[in-house]
Design a protein around this nucleic acid. Structure first.
Length: 312
DNA sequence: AAACGCGGCAACCGCCCTCTG
DNA sequence: GCAGAGGGCGGTTGCCGCGTT
């Protein structure tokens, strides 16, 4: 014989809770605590008319009536946290909620499905993998010919970055390379394949100068920042995974991958970076093979270069 | 003003693991 | 050890309010 049934399934009330039901439940919880939901309706003495099972009471309490629940719109910081945790935990809403005081898993789940998910899709981010996907990106919103001047293009990119800089540094690099390419009159886009769990995106912030050339990536944990070269098309990269392997974290972050129409060059000031020797110079042009080797080490797979005109 | 469509969200559903008798 | 309910959780549904036509 197992447990005794929590309540009679027959005739149980379903649907929205009334204020009277809520008040009865609140009164009971305040007197007895939120413990054994199985026996709650009977103990509350309201079972005959409340007709709610323990499970329903628990859900109502944890998702709506709990006094420590925070109501209202999600703040930017909360949204940032949700996106970051989702990139690590996936759809583990309860685990995400545990790190957001006052928010319930149900509320976070709803907010994700109704707001964040759609926002990511509009921005060309796969909401499942958090990887940039050009097939999802609304390129027309960025490269609309009527808007294609440096100021407005930059505004579009900035708008893109305003959300995505907090999601995935890959899109920073993509957008930065677009900007850099644009300003250098080199009409190409970098398309990259971003594998999961290699470039940590925690607390990444991005700031653009009026011409969008400087990309500042900061990690508050280590109080580190690195700024890309202002005059050349460059893509600063950052990897916590890589950084953790470095004896000198700060030095390992001052790196850029530089692009022009012919070559990829790697620029590093880190003497400790565990890269192939041939790549460990201050500024060197690298071969295709070396580039692949280096990208492989970073788990950063540069697929190819696309002509921007394809999208215009 | 009515009909319709859409988005947000509370609540339910159903699965799976844990717990109890 | 087993059977079966409880508890937790993610997925889904359906209601409601608001904006548009």
């Amino acid at each position: 014989m197992g447990r005794t049934p929590c309540c009679d399934k027959n005739g149980l009330k379903k649907g929205p809770w009334t204020t009277e039901e809520d008040q009865k439940l609140i009164d009971y919880i305040q007197k007895n605590g939120s413990g054994n939901w199985r026996i709650l309706p009977k103990n509350a003495g309201i079972f005959l008319w409340l007709q709610r099972c323990g499970k329903s009471c628990r859900l109502r309490w944890t998702n709506y009536l709990r006094p420590d629940i925070k109501r209202g719109k999600f703040s930017f910081e909360e949204e940032e946290t949700i996106i970051h945790l989702h990139s690590i935990l996936g759809n583990k809403w309860s685990a995400i909620a545990a790190r957001l005081p006052g928010r319930t898993d149900n509320e976070i789940k709803n907010y994700w499905n109704t707001n964040i998910r759609k926002k990511l899709l509009r921005m060309g981010i796969d909401p499942i993998t958090h990887s940039p996907r050009l097939d999802l990106l609304d390129l027309n919103s960025i490269f609309n010919p009527s808007l294609y001047n440096s100021t407005q293009l930059n505004n579009n990119i900035s708008r893109l970055l305003g959300v995505q800089s907090l999601i995935n540094p890959e899109i920073l690099r993509l957008a930065n390379s677009i900007l850099s390419s644009h300003h250098q009159n080199q009409n190409f886009l970098l398309r990259s394949n971003f594998q999961e769990n290699q470039l940590c995106n925690s607390n990444v912030q991005n700031q653009l100068t009026p011409f969008g050339q400087a990309s500042l990536i900061q990690n508050p944990i280590h109080n580190i920042s690195t700024c890309s070269n202002l005059n050349t098309p460059s893509v600063p990269f950052y990897s916590d995974t890589l950084a953790m392997q470095q004896p000198n974290v700060e030095q390992s972050l001052s790196n850029t991958l530089n692009f022009n129409s012919q070559n990829f060059t790697f620029n590093s000031v880190s003497p400790t970076l565990s890269t192939p020797t041939s790549l460990n110079s201050n500024s060197s042009t690298i071969s295709e093979e070396e580039r692949e080797s280096y990208c492989s080490m970073l788990n950063f797979d540069i697929l190819n270069i696309l002509d921007v005109n394809e999208f215009m």
